[in-house]
Design a protein around this nucleic acid. Structure first.
Ligand SMILES: [Zn+2]
Ligand SMILES: [Zn+2]
Ligand SMILES: [Zn+2]
Ligand SMILES: [Zn+2]
Lengths: 140, 140
DNA sequence: TTAATTGCGTTATGCTATAACGTGTGCCAT
DNA sequence: ATGGCACACGTTATAGCATAACGCAATTAA
């Protein structure tokens, strides 16, 4: 009923935010999203942050901690670890030149970290893996 | 000549910041460090950030991206991957209840991520791995 | 209907980080 | 020595990221 793909039962604001992120090549900060949505009636940061909270909770948007920015999920539907969309730990490769982000899941890494945690009695809630560097195109 | 261990050739400000971090059980934000150092003449955030930049560059302080906070390096001197103090990729387990941070290096994880990068022509500059959750003591 | 839940809009505030300017000091090549 | 350079430092101002707290409206459950 509205523009691109969006999960059912998203509210208007959530849909707007998700669509903006989906169309973006690079990650976007909350304030950049806000600026893109002023024409649609957005006036304050909280409108964006509240939508982002919900979208990340649904697992269709990810927060990049090292960038204070957000990306739409680019998961290949590999029903591997905890993937459906309740996806397990995911990693990001972030190009510091062009801004391109690659999202991937590595079974081995996930399990290694899980093993380490179990061995120490540590109960993981959320794991962040972000590789910053230069993508093939930008690495000269 | 001054309190705890500090690498040679640190400036006065760098030493102050490093010592505060070394004595702290939990990670500290730049502004928390600033407050701790007001008695020593610190007045502005930049004094802290400049010291932190140098200390992280030296590898004796780490930034926790998911917390916007800093910790003194707690590396066991395992001369494993790129460890001496030009240490390779390191991971952190962060307890969201008590704030305790465990720093560790996992050879396998490091190499897996390196392999992924090589396979895609991606040139890593800095890798962040942070597991947030509950430590053994706090996990009930 | 009533109460609980959830989303929404707004204002104000707080936390994190850097820009830009000028000063001082040590070091080295001239 | 003297000029140039590199580096740390101090200060003020500003930019960028995130949440508190209020009140209202719509939806759902009991
Ligand atoms: Zn994803
Ligand atoms: Zn690139
Ligand atoms: Zn370390
Ligand atoms: Zn704990």
């Amino acid at each position: 009923m509205n523009a691109p793909v969006s999960s059912p039962s998203l509210t208007k604001n959530q849909t707007l935010v998700f669509d903006v992120l989906s169309r973006s090549e690079a990650p976007m900060s909350a304030y950049t999203i806000l600026d893109k949505l002023r024409d649609h009636g957005f006036r304050a940061p909280l409108q964006v942050y509240r939508a982002l909270d919900k979208l990340t909770e649904l697992g269709i948007v990810h927060r990049l901690e090292s960038l204070n920015a957000f990306v739409a999920c680019a998961h290949r539907e590999s029903t591997c670890c905890g993937a459906g969309h309740g996806h397990g730990t995911v990693a990001f490769a972030i190009c510091e030149s062009c801004g391109q982000v690659s999202e991937f899941h590595d079974h081995e890494v996930d399990h290694r970290l899980g093993d380490w945690a179990r061995g120490r009695g540590f109960r993981p809630a959320k794991t962040t893996i972000e590789i910053r560097g230069l993508c093939r195109g930008c690495a000269a």
